[in-house]
Design a protein around this nucleic acid. Sequence first.
DNA 1: GCAGACATAAACAACC
DNA 2: GGGTTGTTTATGTCTG
Length: 405
Amino acid sequence: MSLRGWSANLPSSLSPPWNRNPPGLMGPVVGMSPDKKAGSPGSQGGACGAGTLPEAESASSPLATSLDRLGRAGTGGAGTEGETTEDEELTNLNWLHENLLQNFSLGGPEDIEGSPDEHPLSSSSSSSISSSLSGGQAAERDPLKSKPPFSFSLLIFMAIEQSPSKSLPVKDIYSWILQHFPYFSSAPTGWKNSVRHNLSLNKCFRKVERSLGKRCCLPLQTNGKGSLWCVDPEFRPTLAQALRKQHFPNTHAFYTPPASPPSASSPPHHLLLMEQGSALRESDFDAATAMMLLKSASEQHSDPYDQEGPIDLSRRGEVVLVSRDPQQDHNYSSSPPPPLSRDVPSARRAQAPGPVGGKRVRLRHADLDEELKEAAGSLLHLAGVRPSLQVPKQRGRKSRKISRK
DNA sequence: GCAGACATAAACAACC
DNA sequence: GGGTTGTTTATGTCTG
């Protein structure tokens, strides 16, 4: 129920911008959805709910406050159905930001560990939001109950990147997704299959032996079954870019090179938000994505995981290879700029060259610096340079799609 | 209309 | 034996 959840229940003008797919990055599929099976969602909630996932802490991050704010937004800020103002679109953006991007702060894992008291979605935060909404409209209007606008690849990417150890067992990936997207708690368990499917097929993710993983990871509260999954450092910038583009298809349209990169003393993004109050703007999301990029790019340079982890493809000073040839990259990727194909037959997959094979474009640290600069530019936008919000040209197509239903 | 991207389902094997 | 994990295949939908 991607579009049905995010758009079909809303006026077309309320459809979140991320549903207007950036070039090369397909949006959520409308047709087959976890809730397409009538009657099944409810029963699935218990099976995959947080209660059955005691290891959630390892992938958790503070969300309580943002969820509370989301609750307020759901009650008052979302506007009424039928209104088609730009502000309402921004309200949807608020959801994205406050639920996810805020976690991608400069603090990274430290931030997560630094606030153990706040257990995301534990408890009442989610239920209070639902209860704050009126009756049966809650599920429809509560974005927490709608399918997230991210592909599974990006969800997995975010989950892994949010983990202190930059690697997670599949169970913790489930937990992270459940915590941040309660939609899946009521969705059929097929989404877990999709997660595993992505992990297996997407070359952006790599399986790490648990014994090796522990070498660079914090102790995990798992039963030892399965492997750890991490993001291939080679594809981390690509995934970050995919995430950015998913948020801002028109990012480059308003990009202005920054005069200087943001200082290390810059306040975390959530602090900036606090200073600016609750009126979020689309530039905030750009900045949040910038945080993601900053974090991602910085880890390309100094991530201890890269230094001693089992995946050691991008050590300091070395080049990072990113394939740009779809013929060479028969992988399961969500990264748009190099259109990486996926879901290839196993035979083709076996024939596909490894991450270091094929036609490559060398992405040096200078390129990473460019991304850093771009992220810094986004921070400038956050500081007050408001970008022009272009109306995505897919709107017409979306309207067509909605009307087709 | 086609190719690519993505989601979903299902089968199967291995492991705990 | 049951549940989980991981892999593979197939199929449907949407978008460019």
